[in-house]
Amino acid sequence: MIKTLGLTHLSLAVGDLDRSLAFYSQAFGVREYYRDADSVQVLGPGAHDVIAFELDPLRAGERAGIDHFGFRLVRPDDIDAAVNEVVRAGGKLIRRGEFAPGCPFAYVSDPDGYQIELWFEATPAVEQDGR
């Protein structure tokens, strides 16, 4: 087995770099750390998260076999605020529900149409220290 820091980045083809940066900054608190004419890279909310926005209007929003990606919530009670923030930032609610009592989820989309899962699932680490 190869030791890694886990899945650390995601690259998305987007139609507008500034629109994507604004959406993910407002909804998820990402911070820009690199930019050139065709891309913007941001540091995400997790310790090792990077999202790269690659300007490619012809492929923006194509799922190409990847159904969605997700952000795991710290508390189950944050689901309503998370959905509201995504909508306020320019995204859309697709559907929501619960995997089990106390384990809510919502599927939302970003301005390019990528599906994002917002979800909570308790684990011993989450229950003990809130991470």
Results as ranks from 00 to 15, higher is better:
residue 128 Q to L: 07
residue 109 S to R: 12
residue 112 D to N: 10
residue 106 A to M: 05
residue 26 Q to I: 05
residue 55 L to P: 03
residue 52 A to G: 03
residue 114 Y to G: 08
residue 26 Q to E: 11
residue 106 A to Q: 12
residue 80 D to Y: 02
residue 123 T to F: 00
residue 67 D to M: 04
residue 49 D to S: 15
residue 59 R to Y: 04
residue 110 D to R: 09
residue 27 A to L: 13
residue 31 R to S: 14
residue 123 T to W: 00
residue 17 L to Y: 13
residue 16 D to R: 10
residue 79 I to G: 02
residue 69 F to E: 07
residue 71 F to M: 02
residue 20 S to T: 13
residue 123 T to D: 01
residue 84 N to F: 00
residue 27 A to Y: 14
residue 19 R to Y: 01
residue 56 D to G: 06
residue 83 V to G: 13
residue 39 S to T: 13
residue 83 V to P: 15
residue 17 L to N: 10
residue 20 S to D: 06
residue 44 G to E: 05
residue 67 D to I: 08
residue 71 F to Q: 00
residue 30 V to P: 06
residue 107 Y to W: 12
residue 13 A to E: 02
residue 106 A to N: 03
residue 5 L to Y: 11
residue 98 E to P: 07
residue 93 L to S: 11
residue 41 Q to Y: 10
residue 120 F to I: 02
residue 126 V to K: 10
residue 128 Q to N: 07
residue 17 L to F: 08
residue 73 L to E: 00
residue 130 G to K: 04
residue 28 F to W: 10
residue 35 R to D: 03
residue 80 D to R: 14
residue 18 D to T: 11
residue 69 F to S: 12
residue 35 R to A: 09
residue 2 I to V: 12
residue 51 I to R: 04
residue 36 D to V: 08
residue 117 E to D: 06
residue 20 S to L: 06
residue 122 A to C: 04
residue 64 A to R: 14
residue 3 K to R: 11
residue 97 G to R: 10
residue 116 I to K: 09
residue 76 P to Y: 10
residue 29 G to C: 03
residue 119 W to G: 02
residue 30 V to R: 03
residue 82 A to T: 09
residue 86 V to G: 03
residue 110 D to H: 09
residue 92 K to W: 00
residue 112 D to G: 10
residue 1 M to N: 07
residue 98 E to L: 14
residue 131 R to Q: 12
residue 82 A to G: 13
residue 120 F to M: 03
residue 116 I to L: 13
residue 78 D to G: 01
residue 52 A to V: 14
residue 49 D to R: 13
residue 51 I to F: 08
residue 7 L to T: 10
residue 57 P to Y: 07
residue 10 L to D: 01
residue 107 Y to P: 08
residue 47 A to Y: 02
residue 121 E to W: 00
residue 68 H to I: 10
residue 12 L to G: 07
residue 3 K to I: 11
residue 50 V to A: 01
residue 58 L to D: 10
residue 99 F to T: 06
residue 123 T to G: 01
residue 1 M to H: 07
residue 85 E to M: 04
residue 27 A to T: 15
residue 29 G to A: 03
residue 101 P to F: 02
residue 78 D to F: 07
residue 78 D to C: 01
residue 49 D to T: 15
residue 86 V to D: 01
residue 100 A to C: 08
residue 100 A to T: 02
residue 50 V to I: 14
residue 54 E to N: 07
residue 130 G to I: 02
residue 59 R to F: 04
residue 26 Q to K: 06
residue 123 T to E: 01
residue 88 R to A: 15
residue 29 G to D: 06
residue 79 I to V: 12
residue 97 G to P: 08
residue 69 F to D: 13
residue 5 L to K: 15
residue 63 R to G: 06
residue 126 V to G: 03
residue 115 Q to L: 06
residue 71 F to L: 12
residue 34 Y to A: 13
residue 77 D to P: 01
residue 59 R to A: 03
residue 29 G to V: 01
residue 109 S to C: 11
residue 12 L to M: 14
residue 65 G to Y: 06
residue 88 R to K: 11
residue 93 L to R: 04
residue 4 T to L: 07
residue 13 A to G: 00
residue 89 A to L: 05
residue 116 I to T: 02
residue 94 I to H: 10
residue 35 R to F: 11
residue 79 I to Y: 11
residue 3 K to H: 08
residue 116 I to C: 10
residue 27 A to C: 10
residue 3 K to T: 07
residue 71 F to T: 00
residue 45 P to W: 04
residue 100 A to R: 13
residue 97 G to D: 05
residue 126 V to Q: 04
residue 62 E to L: 09
residue 19 R to P: 04
residue 73 L to F: 10
